[in-house]
Computed example of a mutant assay.
Amino acid sequence: MSLDNVVEDIRDEARARAEEIRQDGQEQADAIIAEAEADAEDILESRTADVEQQIEREREQALSSAKLEAKQARLGARRDVLQRVREQVERELAEFEGDRREELTRSLLDAAAVEFEDEDEVSVYGRDEDADMLETILADYDGYEVAGERDCLGGVVVEGANSRVRVNNTFDSVLDTVWEDNLKEVSTRLFDDQ
């Protein structure tokens, strides 16, 4: 074999080996690219799912927030209506006149007087505008006298000199009790709650 033939054989072997290496390299590159593309596809699907879940969570949060705001607005409106109703009742109580006012005041005083049966001196407070009416009513009660005014819609606050007992039988206190006891029913009637 001549040196040229040996060189040519070595070159052929080197070319074959180079082709083999190139093919192996190409196969590895193709495998890496395929794996990278698969990974990229998986990442894309995962990120797409994450984004869709995030969008759904944000949509649910926005919906919940909107429902809560609507509920709060509805409750606020109901509170406003109930407040207006209460104010109207207060105005009507303050506007009671004549026999009706005297009858209610006398009933409230009678209810309070039970607490002061053993008292010699009893002080009665009422609305400034009711002073003359209270004087007339107290003429029927021994030891009772008008002692001053109270800022109220009407009725009486009664105090015993000896027992230090105070009974608040004003229209305001009666309204507070009736209002609290019947608020649910009032709300149901106004807003047709079931």
Rank of each mutant, 00 (worst) to 15 (best):
E56A: 15
E92I: 00
G98L: 10
S173H: 06
A62Y: 08
D99W: 03
R47G: 03
E119I: 11
K67F: 07
E115R: 12
E121I: 08
L175T: 00
K184Y: 10
E121G: 04
V114Y: 14
A147K: 01
E37N: 02
S46G: 09
K71F: 11
V165S: 09
E60F: 07
E145K: 08
E145C: 07
E19D: 12
D42W: 05
K184I: 09
D181A: 14
E45S: 04
L175R: 00
R84I: 06
D193W: 13
A112L: 01
Q23D: 15
D132S: 11
R101Q: 05
T105M: 08
E69Y: 09
N182W: 07
A49Y: 03
E8A: 13
Q53S: 08
A16S: 12
A94H: 11
E149T: 12
E87D: 15
L75E: 11
A36T: 13
I55Y: 05
A147V: 01
Q26T: 05
T136H: 01
Q83G: 12
M133Y: 03
D50A: 13
S163P: 02
T136I: 09
K71E: 12
D120W: 04
I43F: 08
V167R: 11
R78E: 10
A14M: 10
R47I: 07
V6W: 14
I33M: 08
D42K: 04
Q53H: 06
A34L: 15
L104A: 06
I33Y: 10
D132R: 08
G155A: 07
E13V: 06
R78V: 12
S107E: 14
D176N: 12
R86Y: 13
Q61D: 05
Q83F: 15
T170N: 07
E159L: 03
A111D: 05
E35C: 02
K67C: 02
E8V: 09
G154N: 03
E145F: 15
E19G: 13
